[in-house]
């Protein structure tokens, strides 16, 4: 629900002494994104894509820091960030699995997919598995209706899903390094999420046909 503004006063995950907007992020902003727009505020979405990539969610501290960085109020940042579904204000599992539930996927049986996932992982949409590995989301149209039913696993499209094998695939996903853990080559699986921040070539498409 895009129109529900998150309560700014609720207790949030503990803030930390070191800033959430790292020096690398600030430099990327100044060298790349701020140059693209006539107003600083326009760089808000690129900035929070970076925050999402780095931490897997948007810590409240990052909102305060972004307000100072972009020269706008905390309320303006909160107002914008809380509107977008991909900007999550709570931590989720290492893998965000977004299963499409819109019309073409319903016609192709998305409910069976979600049902099998529920059976094998024990989670409903919006819930995280006990080991903290996977959070399943039921989302609206992913724009891949010819491959219905479909889903994104950390941004990577998987189409023509079969309930049993997809749920098993999720069970077998390898554990990822924790968000923010740079020593372990953090973000390899997310690299494609920050266009321009990586030299990696786009991966070949996986044909489901």
């Amino acid at each position: 629900m895009a129109w529900i503004v998150e309560n700014r006063l609720k207790a949030y995950t503990p803030t930390r002494a070191e800033p959430y907007l790292t020096d690398t992020m600030r430099k990327t902003m100044e060298d790349t994104y701020l140059l693209r727009y006539p107003r600083k505020q326009a760089a808000l979405l690129p900035l929070f894509h970076m925050v999402m990539h780095e931490y897997g969610y948007i810590p409240a501290g990052a909102i305060d820091e972004a307000a100072a960085f972009l020269g706008i109020t905390q309320a303006q940042v909160q107002d914008a960030v809380s509107f977008y579904e991909e900007f999550r204000l709570q931590p989720s599992g290492q893998y965000a699995v977004q299963v499409c539930r819109s019309i073409s996927c319903e016609l192709a049986g998305h409910e069976a997919v979600l049902g099998k996932v529920r059976e094998l992982l024990g989670t409903d949409p919006e819930e995280t598995t006990e080991d903290g590995k996977i959070t399943v989301f039921a989302v609206e149209c992913l724009g891949a209706c010819e491959q219905a039913p479909c889903a994104l696993i950390n941004g990577k499209l998987r189409g023509n899903l079969r309930p049993e094998s997809f749920a098993q695939e999720l069970q077998q996903l390898p554990p990822l390094p924790q968000h923010g853990d740079h020593s372990a080559g953090n973000g390899a699986a997310h690299a494609a999420k920050i266009p321009g921040a990586t030299a990696s070539k786009v991966e070949p498409e996986v044909h489901g046909h």
Binding site: R36, A42, L44, L45, P46, A80, Y84, E85, F87, V139
Partner: peptide, 26 residues
Amino acid sequence: YVHRGAGAYICGEETGLLESLEGKRG
């Protein structure tokens, strides 16, 4: 330049898109 949205259908409406481009809710 590429400008990425963040999951909101309404940003396909042309003026919602502009708001989102400016860093606001769509």
